[in-house]
Amino acid sequence: MTLGDSTTTPRRTPARPVVHARDVRMTYGDLDVLHGVDLDIHHGEVFALLGPNGAGKTTTVEILEGFRRRSAGEVSVLGTDPERGDDAWRSRIGLVLQSWRDHRRWRVGELLTHFATYYADPRDPAELLALVGLTDQAGRPVERLSGGQRRRLDVALGIVGRPELLFLDEPTTGFDPEARHEFHALVDRLARDEGVTVLLTTHDLVEAERLADRIAMMVGGRIRACGTPAELAGRAAARAEVRWTADDGTPRRERTEDPSRLVWELHRRADGPIAGLEVRRPTLEDTYLHMVHREADGADPGTGTDMNTGTGTGTDEEAHVV
């Protein structure tokens, strides 16, 4: 079974996925951290890896980054096994981690100019500073940047070498809403205008929904669902909720897997408009919480993968607010 590549059409038709992983396993001693992860990420796609702490997101990403050796499975990133990635391969990858506190004494402009020298065809440091909104801070030491500015500098450093694939690890933790909005616009530009493939790990459902073309939900060392945000929300085992006001004025609500049918039946029964009719589609959050709770309740892990073979979203267009 392949995950993901059945559901979306990538913006450009690629010869092969930028990231391709099959049955990746990771074991530390007796502890199984990854139980066979399958992943395909296509050229120019923004792909989000969602999951609670300890789900195996970091391990998965570090295997793809070439920082960790997998116990078993097949991985190819930009056509190369990350365990054998050389400098030429490294130069095609950009990394933005959340824990970097390096080069504190360096000035912002100086640091960016220095890191440009490692690449054959770097971006212009001055243009890059403008792109991430740090032109005014170019002469400032890195240690005197705010948290959001520091992260934007990390992004600039991550893309100075024009990477084809960019890893973003919890990129907007600690951002204020405006900085977050600007950061999202920047990621959009990189992906839409420049065809950079982005792999984003996050806890933030709103961010994943806002940025990602496709989302993989990871729980307990497995990818439990993968698809577009709409598909995932639609596929939720959590059901849609229909609310309306009955003839006697009492508010009514009903959960159903087929809200369209329920609404049609209501209309037939009422033979006219229905007061206060509202259909709430299951959200990405419903799907996510459902999946995490099922894992916490100790449900058979094997049943989780049936999410991936779900029947898609044929009734999507009917399930909107009336």
Partner: peptide, 16 residues
């Protein structure tokens, strides 16, 4: 520098 991430940044950089 290892603790601050300088070493990691250079590891992620070609020729770093």
């Amino acid at each position: 520098e290892r603790e601050e991430g300088t070493l990691l940044r250079l590891r992620a950089t070609p020729g770093g």
